[in-house]
Amino acid sequence: MTRISLDQANTIIAAGFAKGSELGLKPLSIAVLDAGGHLLAFQRQDGASTLRPQIACAKAGGALSLGVSSRKIGDMAVDRPTFVASLGPIAPHGVVPAAGGVIIVDDADLPIGAVGITGDTSDNDEACALAGIAAAGLNAQA
């Protein structure tokens, strides 16, 4: 598979929301981008705050831009804060260096898109992203 279908993107979102409900999380917002960083699908739950669409896209887009999860970008920010801070203005969706942005890969480990989730703690956002990816029958980057 070389791309994510709209059905798969919607499955990722539905399963991410289901995981959030199971865990009793705050309202989530979920963005699914294709390999080129284009928005495929987005939804936010009732009660989600107004900046959440941009944050979800920045987590996913930043991951795609650097080729690593947004969690790893957060780790980078500890050692290289000036570098990571400089990425926001030049990245199409911005960059949010916090867990919740996960790259989706094909069977050859090549990126086919990314999921960005925001709304609860970063660890919980990431758990929902991983659940959504798995529910769609896709693989998260290791």
Results as ranks from 00 to 15, higher is better:
53 P>M: 00
114 A>H: 02
59 K>M: 08
52 R>Q: 04
113 G>A: 08
99 A>S: 14
78 V>Y: 03
42 F>I: 14
85 A>K: 10
1 M>W: 14
89 P>A: 14
69 S>Q: 04
131 A>N: 07
60 A>I: 01
114 A>L: 07
38 H>P: 06
75 D>G: 06
23 L>Q: 15
44 R>H: 07
4 I>S: 12
121 T>S: 06
95 V>M: 06
64 L>Q: 10
71 R>C: 08
92 P>A: 15
46 D>G: 08
79 D>K: 14
114 A>Q: 10
121 T>V: 03
78 V>D: 03
11 T>S: 15
142 A>Y: 10
75 D>F: 04
107 D>R: 13
108 A>N: 11
82 T>L: 15
87 L>M: 01
107 D>I: 09
87 L>R: 01
26 K>M: 15
111 P>K: 06
123 D>K: 12
18 A>Y: 05
3 R>E: 13
94 G>T: 02
28 L>V: 12
86 S>E: 10
104 I>V: 04
85 A>I: 02
106 D>Y: 02
109 D>K: 13
138 L>D: 00
111 P>F: 06
108 A>V: 09
85 A>G: 12
70 S>F: 03
101 G>C: 02
76 M>N: 05
116 G>Q: 04
15 A>F: 14
2 T>P: 13
74 G>P: 00
74 G>M: 05
136 A>F: 02
71 R>W: 11
86 S>G: 13
63 A>W: 07
47 G>T: 09
86 S>Q: 03
72 K>E: 06
24 G>E: 15
36 G>S: 13
79 D>T: 11
26 K>T: 12
14 A>P: 04
113 G>D: 00
87 L>P: 00
76 M>T: 00
54 Q>A: 11
45 Q>W: 09
34 D>C: 13
129 A>N: 01
66 L>M: 12
85 A>R: 06
101 G>Q: 00
97 P>T: 04
113 G>L: 08
141 Q>T: 00
47 G>N: 11
57 C>G: 04
12 I>A: 02
36 G>F: 15
123 D>F: 12
134 A>W: 12
100 G>V: 09
119 G>C: 07
74 G>K: 05
128 C>T: 04
67 G>C: 09
69 S>E: 01
128 C>I: 06
53 P>S: 03
66 L>S: 07
142 A>F: 07
137 G>D: 09
75 D>Q: 08
116 G>F: 01
104 I>K: 11
137 G>H: 14
7 D>G: 10
122 S>M: 04
112 I>D: 04
118 T>P: 08
81 P>E: 11
3 R>N: 08
128 C>W: 01
89 P>D: 10
55 I>N: 03
76 M>P: 02
15 A>P: 07
13 I>D: 08
13 I>H: 01
43 Q>D: 10
66 L>Y: 14
39 L>A: 10
139 N>P: 06
45 Q>F: 05
45 Q>P: 09
119 G>I: 05
107 D>E: 09
80 R>H: 06
48 A>E: 03
112 I>Q: 00
50 T>E: 13
94 G>A: 12
51 L>C: 06
75 D>E: 15
133 I>W: 12
133 I>Y: 00
50 T>V: 15
101 G>T: 05
61 G>N: 09
114 A>R: 02
22 E>L: 15
39 L>F: 10
57 C>Q: 10
86 S>W: 09
98 A>M: 14
130 L>I: 14
19 K>H: 15
86 S>L: 14
13 I>Q: 04
12 I>V: 14
110 L>M: 09
107 D>A: 07
5 S>R: 08
15 A>D: 11
118 T>Y: 07
124 N>D: 13
120 D>P: 02
